[in-house]
Design a protein around this nucleic acid. Structure first.
Length: 389
DNA sequence: TCTGGGGTCCTAGGACCC
DNA sequence: TCTGGGGTCCTAGGACCC
């Protein structure tokens, strides 16, 4: 389970729960498959609204952004809080969704503000009030501070965000690395993280993993899972016009022991046919017959734009071109008839083992299961959007 | 959080070179 | 041949985020 409504959360549903657990805690829960396409449409519209208020918008994730309001009070004829309020109202009227906003001197403080009051919150943290908001906040709730760092800081009596902010520079320099020094500055109202406007150029890596229940020690089955991971990762890479120069594969056992390895590729590629060989070699080294595996994963790394791929004198160009043709045909078929219309025989043995009920299938069940006269968007009850194509 | 899936960045230490 | 100093690049792994 990836996300829960506020109502579900109130009844004890938590992020990362498995579906049967959700049903145990909250039998009346309505479980829906995710619909990334719709989220993306809202996301694009939301960022577009933000940009009406300021040109400096950092699209941080699909549902979050940083907006730099510095210097805009003049043109907006009002304080920052008022600009934020207007921004919030605009999103609500145009998109029919609520957003929570934090306004402060730095990104880390703005984040704290945005989480302070949800949903539909608007929290302004001026410099003189920083301590108020930090005092009641556990240090691990601060953006960038996780359980490990919180545990470490706890050894020095640092429990709250305020405890951390008040530590002197000598302590910070002595014990903490760059990211935490930066957070420390941000908490003290000194902005060190810029709002970066330019959208992230591209992926650094593409990964595909899959957990299967029950766990398996079947060599053929586990390798097939990896092959399928690889195929899926390659599909995504090709969609973004990227080729990989490294292949990482890993296996996770029932006991959550991970083993993995990285393989450097002789030339950049996004074709499974090029990668099954190395994948298999890696797998043979990792696989232990007596282990029970619950997850496989593949990461394509060292991604380079397809265009820039240089072939060496000794590469077989005609073979490469043939491969390109085959895969572009496969991609077109997949687009037209669905993802798994055509796939490699190597991935076939994933069907050896029936998956437990209630586990995710390859596609959300709802897709295609529409009533007459319905389309996906109407069914979700979404407001009509003007979609730029 | 008794454990789903997809990402990013930082750092220490080794390899290699002059 | 051995030793010392310094720079760069790469990799594994850690930590964190949505």
């Amino acid at each position: 389970m990836a996300a829960a409504s506020y109502e579900a959360k109130a009844r004890g549903v938590q992020r990362g729960m498995r579906l049967f657990e959700v049903k145990n805690v909250c039998p009346s829960a309505v479980i829906l498959p995710s619909d990334y396409e719709t989220y993306s449409l809202f996301s694009v519209r939301m960022f577009e609204i933000f940009r009406r208020f300021s040109p400096d918008v950092e699209e941080y994730s699909i549902d979050e952004a940083f907006v730099d309001l510095t210097g805009l009070r003049r043109s907006s004829h009002g304080p920052y809080g008022m600009i934020a309020k207007k921004l919030q109202e605009t999103v609500e009227t145009e998109l029919g969704i609520t957003v929570s906003i934090g306004v402060s001197l730095s990104k880390v403080l703005a984040k704290i503000g945005s989480k302070h009051n949800k949903p539909h919150g608007l929290t302004i943290i001026p410099g003189m009030d920083i301590h108020i908001y930090l005092a009641g906040l556990a240090v691990e709730k601060v953006w960038g501070i996780g359980p490990n760092t919180a545990a470490f800081l706890g050894k020095f009596g640092v429990k709250t965000a305020l405890d951390f902010a008040k530590k002197d520079e000598k302590f910070i320099e002595k014990y903490l690395s760059k990211p935490y020094r930066e957070i420390w500055n941000e908490l003290n109202g000194r902005s060190v993280y810029p709002v970066t406007t330019e959208s992230k150029s591209s992926y650094q890596s593409i990964s595909k993993t899959k957990t299967f229940t029950p766990p398996s020690s079947d060599e053929t089955f586990v390798l097939a899972q990896l092959s399928k991971n690889l195929e899926n990762a390659c599909i995504k890479a090709r969609r973004y016009g990227l080729s990989a120069t490294r292949l990482i594969l890993f296996l996770r056992t029932q006991e959550f022991r991970d083993t993995g390895m990285e393989i450097k590729l002789s030339h950049p590629t996004a074709y499974p046919a090029d990668l099954f060989g190395p994948l298999r070699e890696g797998f043979v080294q990792l696989y232990r017959r007596l282990s029970l595996y619950r997850q496989t994963g593949v990461v394509l790394g060292g991604l380079v734009p397809e265009i820039k791929v240089q072939y060496s004198l000794f590469d077989d160009i005609s073979k490469i071109e043939k491969m390109a043709k085959i895969y572009s045909a496969i991609d077109r078929i997949a687009e037209k008839y669905g993802k798994y219309t055509v796939h490699h025989a190597r991935s076939l043995p994933t069907k050896l083992q029936t998956q437990h009920e209630g586990e995710r299938g390859d596609e959300p069940e709802r897709k295609g299961d529409l009533f007459k006269g319905e389309n996906k968007r109407q069914r979700l009850g979404l407001p009509m959007l003007k979609i730029k194509v």
